[in-house]
Design a protein around this nucleic acid. Structure first.
Length: 467
RNA sequence: GCUCCCAUCGUCUAGCGGUCUAGGACGUCGCCCUCUCAAGGCGAAAACACGAGUUCGAGUCUCGUUGGGAGCGCCA
């Protein structure tokens, strides 16, 4: 039997951070065990499912590189199959029709709650053997065992036991003829040969009833692994207000998919003291059984740090591909300035997101529009600034080759000839090149401007000198 | 209310009865380096929720308390 996991999102919104981690763990577990990864879209809620959401999920998975071996499979396309299985359960006396109205069900629950009991369906039609009626309220309910308990060994939570007396006869098929989640998942996981179910721990409560359905169907019960939640930085459930955004938002915000994945894999899982994991390493080392059983919080600061680690260690050409996307996103034409890979090299240790990187790269692609007053008065207003700029203009114009090293040599020569410290040379030049007093090392800053541009900016800055 | 789950530095975690005067990472703070900003180096502060057991010995096992969370739908 092939090892098989599945990721089964419902398309009622984008792929959020918790879903992304679940998808990652399913994907890793399948890869690690040499099995297959199935993507199944749980769209039986016709009210809330949208095509846009389906697309958003697909886009998110693609961006993260979590490719499925099988799927996407859509549940709505399998309705005939659910009806078939439902009929079988009905024929075998393992399910029955019930005819209560929603109001009656609500009243039933309220009454139970009032008595301090768990709100449940009371099984009124369970043993009545009433003939089938074509009632608009009719639903098919599962005959849950009355006695005993359900026990399963969760791969992350450990042994969980549930008394059948806690479970009621839940709905298998709704009055509209569509299956409920608890029924559809079982049929699907059975049909698709899923051997390991990895999902959020908000499903732990559903597991016992699902196991009962597997058993009623005579199907093998898969192994379960329930992942703890990911909370917001404040320890509260992720909401629209703090961080419950789609993974594609992380792209917009300037994070590399490899950094997000690395962050996510370490959130709830670890391998000794290791923090950085390449994709092959994750596949090799990941084991769902090593996942922590407690909830964790999402920490943007650490994500930022990791993102920067990738800026520093990945091939600049790779990061440049993403940078170009961001440059274009803010209206900069990468063709109007230095090679993006060189920008990556210059800014890698200075920013944590591609968004910042693109913003800070702006000076090399577009003319300076704003001059920081303080910077100008402090560094262009000094007594030595004019001489520095004049010399820089001459020497840079005379350079044989325009390289970072050559530019660096010019700057050192100026400092030596004028008998000035590096600060006295670098700062006026920095203001000339950028209009501000903050930028990467001065040689890179000048180099990235390009000779023509650098010389023009020196002229412009010279005119702003006091003397 | 009922059922289930969870509990080590601010955060992510290591720890699978003795090697824990609890380790690493992010963040924070200090120092160094330094052309700005960073990055980097060095160092510091910082945690076993509480209470009973079991045991020669408990962060590690058991129970309880407290505190979080999830579920109790013809949502998934």
């Amino acid at each position: 039997m092939t090892f098989r996991t599945r990721f089964a999102p419902s398309p009622t919104g984008f792929l959020h951070i918790g879903g992304a981690r679940t998808a990652l763990y399913c994907w890793l577990e399948a890869r690690h065990r040499g099995g297959e990864f199935v993507l199944r879209v749980e769209d039986t809620d016709r009210e809330r499912s949208t095509d846009e959401a389906v697309q958003a999920i697909l886009d998110g998975m693609h961006w993260l590189g979590l490719d499925a071996d099988i799927g996407p499979i859509y549940q709505t396309e399998r309705v005939a199959r659910y009806r078939e299985v439902a009929d079988k359960l009905l024929a075998e006396g393992k399910a029955y029709w019930a005819y209560e109205t929603r109001e009656e069900i609500d009243a039933m629950r309220e009454a139970a709650r009032a008595k301090g009991e768990k709100p449940r369906y009371n099984g009124y039609y369970r043993d009545r053997n009433e003939p089938y009626r074509d009632d608009p309220n009719r639903v098919l309910r599962f005959k849950n065992p009355l006695q005993g308990s359900v026990v399963f060994e969760d791969k992350v939570k450990g042994r969980i036991e549930w008394s059948n007396s806690e479970l009621d006869d839940f709905v298998l098929m709704r009055s509209d003829g569509f299956p409920t989640y608890n029924f559809a998942v079982v049929v699907d996981d059975m049909d698709m040969g899923i051997t390991e179910v990895i999902r959020g721990d908000d499903h732990v409560n559903n597991t016992p009833r699902q196991i009962n359905v597997y058993e009623a169907l005579g199907a093998p019960v898969p192994v379960f692994a329930h992942l703890p939640m990911i909370l917001g930085a404040d320890g509260q459930k992720l909401s629209k207000r703090h961080g419950a955004v789609g993974v594609m938002q992380y792209r917009e915000d300037g994070y590399l998919p490899e950094a997000l994945l690395n962050y996510l894999v370490r959130l709830g899982w670890s391998h000794g003291d290791q923090e950085i994991f390449s994709r092959p390493e994750m596949i090799e080392l990941f084991d769902i059984a090593d996942v922590n059983s407690s909830a964790s919080r999402f920490d943007m600061a650490k994500l930022g740090w990791l993102n920067q680690q990738y800026f520093k260690n990945e091939d600049p050409a790779r990061v440049a591909v993403e940078l170009v996307w961001h440059l274009e996103h803010i209206g900069i034409d990468p063709a109007t300035g230095p090679a993006p890979a060189e920008v990556v090299t210059a800014l890698a240790d200075r920013v944590q997101t591609l968004k910042e990187m693109a913003e800070r790269a702006r000076v090399w692609y577009t003319p300076i529009t704003e001059w920081d007053e303080k910077a100008v008065s402090k560094h262009l207003g000094s007594a030595t600034a004019p001489a520095v700029l004049d010399k820089a203009g001459q020497k840079l114009a005379a350079l044989d080759q325009w390289t970072v090293e050559a530019v660096h040599g010019v700057i050192e020569a100026i400092a030596a000839e004028l008998e000035l410290g590096m600060g006295k040379v670098a700062q006026p030049l920095r203001v000339a090149m950028t209009g501000t007093q903050v930028s990467p090392s001065i040689d890179h800053t000048v180099y990235l401007c390009g000779r023509e541009n650098a010389l023009a900016r020196i002229v412009e800055a010279r005119s702003r000198c006091v003397g």
